[in-house]
Amino acid sequence: MVDPFSSPFPASYRCRAATVADARAIHDLVAACERELLGAPETEPDRTVADLTLPGIDLADDTLLILNSLEQLAGWVWVHGGRRSTVDVHPDHRGKGLGGVLLGWAEARARRAGSERLSQTISNEDRAAVELLRSRGYEPFVTQWLLEIALAAEPTVPAPPPGITVRWFRPGDERAAYQLTEDAFDEWQKRRKSYQEWARRTVERDTFAPALSPVAFAGDQMVGAVLSLSVPGSDEGYVERVAVRKDHRNQGIARLLLRESFRAFHRQGHRTCTLWTHSETGALSLYQRVGMTIRRSSAVYGKALGTDQGVL
């Protein structure tokens, strides 16, 4: 592999692959970027750990850290499956071309993995990142929305439809919830996740909250689920997954489960709840009907990699 700093760059920087031990430093970097852009951090520390320990990730090949002369983290890049990437540069180290080098490295890594296309999600408020991606040939193809609902008063919860029972998530529900959510997401996602990958980002996270995650059953079959996260010290709750089995939709099950989760968050002292959705799911109107509004939006940018070699 050619040194990614072979392009003109401050000589005081060096690079290496990430390790799991770098998770805290990476999270601090991401939090600094979010604080600069959004006014407050949004990414939980356990999400960074989950990303670094996903099945199939080879940190030696799929990550790159940029450190300054004081061994402080200035930027990083992460590529998953040769298809998705994340690039972050600390606010104190912007304007030096680090983002362009990391993006070029991500494209080279994706090509080595045999991918023909690479994508990255960027907040619409991050004009510099949007400009960089567009200058490299990326175009937006999916819109994502962060939705929120204020929980000043305890939400009311409708009764379940006939034949449907609702309870909180229990140990042993993991495989049924995986099957349910992946079946539902198959309608729009490009690739079905393995159980190990799904679990690492949901039920195995430290912030996963079974007592805030209602599930619906028809007999002994799980037909709906809301999987929630609770971050210590935050007054905001977060819904990670919402799914209803196709043959049980249009019965109000999703609305019921969401409001059950919102009520549980309220009872634990949370006064706001958020979730992400995007344009391919067709679920925006559902969330708006239960009282959620758009806080901000992002876009997924993609690029056909072609045969240009970029930074190797």
Score class of each variant (00 low, 15 high):
258 L>D: 02
260 E>Q: 15
282 G>H: 05
277 T>E: 02
223 V>A: 04
215 V>K: 09
225 A>R: 02
265 F>W: 10
233 G>K: 11
218 A>F: 15
276 W>N: 13
231 V>I: 14
283 A>S: 14
252 G>Y: 12
224 G>D: 03
247 D>T: 11
250 N>V: 13
273 C>L: 04
270 H>C: 07
268 Q>S: 15
238 Y>N: 09
258 L>K: 01
255 R>F: 10
273 C>A: 15
241 R>T: 09
239 V>Y: 08
274 T>D: 03
228 S>D: 04
264 A>Q: 07
251 Q>F: 13
257 L>K: 00
233 G>Q: 10
223 V>P: 00
234 S>I: 09
265 F>V: 00
244 V>L: 02
256 L>I: 08
263 R>D: 07
217 F>C: 04
221 Q>R: 14
270 H>W: 00
236 E>I: 07
259 R>C: 04
280 E>A: 11
273 C>M: 06
246 K>E: 09
281 T>W: 03
285 S>T: 13
225 A>T: 07
230 S>V: 09
247 D>F: 08
246 K>G: 07
246 K>S: 14
214 P>D: 02
268 Q>C: 13
213 S>M: 11
271 R>E: 05
219 G>D: 00
277 T>W: 01
217 F>Q: 07
214 P>G: 04
249 R>F: 00
283 A>N: 02
231 V>M: 08
267 R>M: 08
256 L>N: 05
251 Q>N: 06
279 S>Y: 12
231 V>F: 15
221 Q>K: 12
261 S>Q: 04
278 H>K: 06
261 S>G: 10
213 S>E: 03
234 S>D: 10
270 H>T: 09
231 V>W: 14
221 Q>T: 07
275 L>D: 06
248 H>E: 01
265 F>R: 01
232 P>I: 15
228 S>I: 04
220 D>K: 12
285 S>N: 14
254 A>K: 05
227 L>T: 03
283 A>T: 04
244 V>R: 00
253 I>C: 02
230 S>W: 06
244 V>Q: 05
283 A>D: 01
259 R>Y: 11
276 W>V: 10
254 A>L: 05
253 I>T: 08
242 V>C: 03
259 R>T: 04
275 L>S: 05
271 R>V: 05
216 A>T: 10
261 S>H: 03
255 R>M: 05
237 G>T: 01
273 C>H: 06
266 H>W: 14
229 L>G: 10
245 R>I: 06
262 F>T: 02
240 E>W: 06
272 T>A: 12
252 G>L: 12
251 Q>G: 03
243 A>L: 04
256 L>A: 01
242 V>P: 02
244 V>N: 03
284 L>H: 03
217 F>A: 02
213 S>D: 02
271 R>N: 11
233 G>W: 15
263 R>H: 05
239 V>S: 02
254 A>M: 09
241 R>F: 13
261 S>D: 08
252 G>K: 07
243 A>N: 00
255 R>S: 13
235 D>I: 09
229 L>E: 14
280 E>R: 10
261 S>I: 00
258 L>M: 15
285 S>K: 13
216 A>M: 09
272 T>N: 10
233 G>F: 11
280 E>S: 10
221 Q>C: 11
223 V>C: 09
255 R>A: 15
224 G>N: 08
225 A>Y: 03
265 F>T: 01
214 P>S: 08
283 A>K: 02
222 M>G: 00
283 A>Q: 10
238 Y>L: 08
220 D>G: 06
